[in-house]
Nucleic acid binder design. Sequence first.
DNA 1: TGACCGCCTTGACCAACATCAATTCGCTGC
DNA 2: GCAGCGAATTGATGTTGGTCAAGGCGGTCA
Lengths: 248, 248
Amino acid sequence: MDADLCRGARHSKEMHERSIAAEDFAAFAHLPLFSTLDADCLRKVTAEGKIVRYQRGDILFGQGEEANWLHILIDGQVGLTGSVSGSEETIVAILKSGDVFIAAAVLTGKPYLMGAKTLTASRLLMLPSGRLLSDLRENPDFALAMLTSLSKNFRSLVLEVKDLKLKSASQRLALYLMSLTPKREGSTILHLPHNKILIAGRVGVRPETLSRVFLAIKKEGVVSENQTVAITDLKRLADFCMEGDEII
Amino acid sequence: MDADLCRGARHSKEMHERSIAAEDFAAFAHLPLFSTLDADCLRKVTAEGKIVRYQRGDILFGQGEEANWLHILIDGQVGLTGSVSGSEETIVAILKSGDVFIAAAVLTGKPYLMGAKTLTASRLLMLPSGRLLSDLRENPDFALAMLTSLSKNFRSLVLEVKDLKLKSASQRLALYLMSLTPKREGSTILHLPHNKILIAGRVGVRPETLSRVFLAIKKEGVVSENQTVAITDLKRLADFCMEGDEII
DNA sequence: TGACCGCCTTGACCAACATCAATTCGCTGC
DNA sequence: GCAGCGAATTGATGTTGGTCAAGGCGGTCA
């Protein structure tokens, strides 16, 4: 389905990993998972963590592998992919700075249900699963932050299930485009952050269908050219994909 | 989509709610969420909870309402439904004894993304959201149990997203049937726990399509008559719906 | 007993999206 | 400049599952 996600060099030469230095804290202390923790707690929780840099296209881990590290994306973009029969692959989520991922696998001690690959050069903080449970037990604030993070991810996934079951491809594309801008009325011009093969995976259609869907939503005021998309009336587009009574 | 889930008497006369008595603890102390807690911790955490009994078909809450109570299903069955345009409705999950639900809404303080309705007479333990955060902070074991519970639910949802995107209706029905039995080889006879309208919603198809899909998977060794289904070769059915390399 | 009702099935048809194939465009390396 | 490659589009066609309509079947209730 997605050639770009199927390839990717494992352990590329440029991958760079090291333990945490004092100046690193500034890079992640403000992330949602850590912003409620005091400095002492933060230091304890990340004591055995490491900072890893990846190049674009590197594979972080594959579906089915053992979950040994909790991943926190500091900067860059990471795609989570699920597959069922080896070749068939789909994009479950595209992550952005601050996102925590595969917490569920680490906490349940089960293998990853998804694989992960960088979409751009990325920097990650990784915490070893071995001491995560005891850290959570000893730092209630950390446990609460994890619960909050997991809850938010859970709700995103619920929305995705509902959209997949109840919405058309055009509506899902419109939702995706709306997710790229905070604006909810007026017009806007935005730049697609990924290539269209990737976006097709995210929206849940084939690339060919995405092309046609981009044509179809012209009549909803969406003009696209290459990587640039102009939306003439955000409110109208919201009506089109939310159909009235949405809860975000 | 599902007449049975759209109706339902709110606050039926038979609904019965009361605070927790000593003899109640036996009913829920062994549930996964509580089994790791000591008696003292369990008493504190459930101090302001209540036990509620519902009849079949009662609506527990509607999508979009404020999340004031964490729900734990002690016995019975509850269906979670999502809707996007008022009429269109889909079943996101069917819950069983011991399941915790809408934890994510309670923890993030946001409105429910799904509605809930009993499928059979049910008994629930409900904990007020007001003191949940402080209870979690003061009882690390409880916080960990919540994290575990939420993680398991999260992983089920990931599987559902993957199945919806990558599998056919027949494969999803086969997966659903396999979820009704712990056996993984040989043959078995099982009794459908819900009516077919509900199962159709769960599988993600219309009732008419479910009928046809039941016909279609006869060639995979699934013979159905009314509420009874015979599977002649579970391994073969597993091959059919997993296509090789599944991770459960 | 018969009317009614909800569940379930079946048939005919239709819409949405996938698939297969061909072509264009822009980029990269030689 | 041009060969080669992948991204993106477009057309023709196929498949899946939804929609609409009709009818059977098994309950319940008067």
